[in-house]
Design a protein around this nucleic acid. Sequence first.
RNA 1: GGCCCCGUAGCUCAGCUGGAUAGAGCAAUUGACUUCUAAUCAAUAGGUCGCAGGUUCGAAUCCUGCCGGGGUCGCCA
Length: 492
Amino acid sequence: MTAERWQSVVREIIHRGDDFGRPEIGKGEKLNVEFVSANPTGPMHVGHTRGAVYGDALAALMAFAGFDVTREYYVNDAGGQIDVLARSAYLRYRESLGHEIGPIPEGLYPGEYLVPVGAKLKELFGDQLGTKSEKEWLELVRPVVLEAMMALIRADLARLGIRHDVFFSEKSLHGPEGDIAQTLDWLRTKGLVYQGRLAPPKGGAPRDHEDREQTLFKASEFGDDTDRALVKSDGSYTYFAADIAYHRNKYLRGFLHQAIVLGADHGGYVKRLQAALKAVSGGAAEIDVKICQIVTLLRDGSPVKMSKRSGNIVTVADVVDEVGSDAVRFMLLYRRNDAPLEFDFAKVVAQTRDNPVFYVQYAHARCCSIFRTAGVEIPQLDLSNEALENADLGMLSSDADHELMRVLGTFPRVVDGAARYREPHRVAFYLYELAGALHSMWAKGNQDPGLRFINPGDVKLSTARLALVRGVRQVLVNGLAILGVFAPEELS
RNA sequence: GGCCCCGUAGCUCAGCUGGAUAGAGCAAUUGACUUCUAAUCAAUAGGUCGCAGGUUCGAAUCCUGCCGGGGUCGCCA
């Protein structure tokens, strides 16, 4: 009885192909997944990698589950750090004009990646910037260096196979008629903004607490721990004010479902974000804030020391160049997002069972190899989907057959759970299990020829077994697609 | 001090959305290559699920307290 169910699973896989296992939970509703959103002040470093990969896989998973997904990157191009960046680039500009700049002053970005930006500024402006006031040249330098940094970041994301649909500028929210102003007006009409004082935080050491009257948002009415400041003492908006406007903007664009991927250091930001969206959407929109815990890089068993001051940072590019995008992605996804993770270069490069990436990819390659061999050993075999769907699957009666079919049959449930709880790692673990079941049956075929996938003396059995292998391959393809990991036809 | 995350085999981690004897890989020991690619497989061994209570027919899982590790507590971004 269960055997019949399993057989129907194999048939269903072949029939539905890339759609097999698709959970029907999104119903075409719009979902915005915001991830990475690294500050555009330099290339991406490893710290960003986990959130980038997790966010991308989450987006793919939710798309597979039927959501209309938008991948979004919030560009923090409005803060004081952009001026610091522009000054740093200006220094490189002077350097490219032949001025002696000496060591990069404390507080500016020392990275070599700004050298080409200096040259670009020279190309664009000649020696004219030196004749202008700082206010003037900042205006000219900012957009140039910003674009250059975003180009670096896009290139880093591309290395990981990540592509965002929308790059949303924080700066575009500012201005007298901008979203922030409009949002604050709207909040005022709802009585959610007031002038008041905040009690100093208990314990700890508040660095900058000023007991003064200020413009506050009633975040505590929506579940936050305290009310939050909206305007700085110089009259400009706080980062949070912009963020409220940004999430309202997403809501007004029709995103009733939102997800955002943040690093562990932003854990304290969760409540206020949820409060903000609750307030601006009147409770109509929900945001799922996913926190990625830190990654410890290990080389030869000991942590890789990084120091920003000495410029000794490991970048995304470094890691991808060393181990490859597939290995990086799979290893980072082979762990719950909210658990800390050790990333050991030696293990990630190893092509053994120690490394689940190659184990799973090898399973896919093995499926392909079986089909190549089958075409040679039994030329009269019909390997079309139609023929395999109509194979006599009752021939698949060994324990190994049953185990493999059983694992195949659990794929839809695994994906459904992964999508519901936004946990792509479940798919990664599942693929590992499926790969194991295939490798195991393969090895049994070495002992017992009756368990081989290809039996030249028995076309009927071979057809059934190949239908099974086609099913395994299809599920590996569907799962790897969610993770964004390549499914190779052979390993070289 | 408040809030958040973590504590499961020597190591790295699943299981946490209550169900049956708690799982996998690595490391250790032992076997399988004239193969449908052994980049693989099979077997042995290894655990008071941080501690103590509570809820329940039943707890690694839910609740409370404590211990240990990490993060965070700005008008920064």
